[in-house]
Amino acid sequence: MLDTGEKKVSISVKTSPADKKRAAEIFDSLGLNLSTAINIFIKKSIAEGGLPFEVKDPFYSEANQAELNRRFKKVTNNQNVHPHQLLDNEEQ
């Protein structure tokens, strides 16, 4: 649905200059400017009734958790575990 007859309002968004530049380059390669890309995001969010993508922390991914569990079991069973000294705890 086009909003050709509706009055437009401005939205101010704060981001880093580097992120703005990178996003502008990506959208430019798609034939979009930042304003159009942000409007697409807003329209898609409205259609979805929330963010149009999943927001999650990759730390808790299934693969990462499996690797952490594997390493924890090795430490628990003293398998192939070698002590080391932390750099900030070096004796002088």
Score class of each variant (00 low, 15 high):
Q85P: 00
E67W: 08
A63L: 03
I26W: 04
G31E: 06
E6V: 11
N69C: 02
D88N: 09
F72Y: 09
L86F: 01
A37I: 00
H84Q: 14
A18P: 12
D88V: 11
R71Y: 10
Q65I: 11
E91Q: 09
E62F: 03
A24K: 05
E67C: 03
L51F: 12
I40L: 13
E67N: 11
G50D: 12
I11V: 08
T36L: 08
S10Y: 02
N33T: 13
F72A: 11
G49L: 02
R70A: 03
K21G: 06
E90C: 09
K74E: 04
K73N: 13
K56N: 13
N64M: 02
T4S: 12
L68N: 04
L86C: 07
N80A: 12
T76G: 06
F41V: 05
L34H: 06
E6Q: 10
I11M: 03
G50P: 02
F53P: 11
A63D: 13
S45T: 13
I42H: 05
G31M: 06
H82F: 11
Q85V: 15
K73S: 08
T4D: 14
L87C: 00
Y60A: 07
I40Y: 03
S45D: 01
G50E: 13
K21D: 15
K56D: 06
D3P: 05
S61D: 15
H84G: 12
Y60M: 07
A18T: 11
V13H: 01
N89R: 07
I38R: 08
I42E: 11
K73E: 14
T36W: 01
D57L: 03
Q79V: 13
S12V: 07
F72W: 08
I11S: 00
E91F: 12
E54R: 04
E91H: 05
D57S: 08
R71N: 05
N39Q: 11
H84R: 15
I40G: 01
D19N: 14
S10L: 09
N39P: 00
Q92W: 15
V9M: 04
V81I: 05
E91R: 14
V81L: 06
E54H: 11
I42V: 15
N80L: 05
L34E: 03
L32K: 10
L68Y: 11
T15A: 13
A18R: 05
P83K: 06
G5C: 05
S35T: 04
I40S: 01
D19Q: 09
D3H: 13
K14L: 05
N33V: 04
Q79P: 00
T15R: 01
S35M: 04
F53M: 06
K74T: 01
Q92S: 10
K56T: 13
A23W: 13
E90H: 10
A66P: 09
E62H: 12
Y60Q: 01
K56P: 09
E91W: 07
R71G: 06
L68K: 02
L2A: 14
L51Y: 15
V81N: 04
S45K: 02
T76F: 08
A63Q: 14
N33K: 10
E91Y: 12
A63G: 09
A66L: 03
D88M: 09
A24P: 05
K21L: 12
L68H: 08
I11W: 00
E62L: 14
V13M: 00
I11K: 07
I40H: 02
Q85K: 14
K56G: 07
R71M: 13
L32N: 00
Q65A: 02
H84I: 10
P52T: 06
A23F: 11
E54V: 14
T76E: 15
K7R: 11
D88G: 09
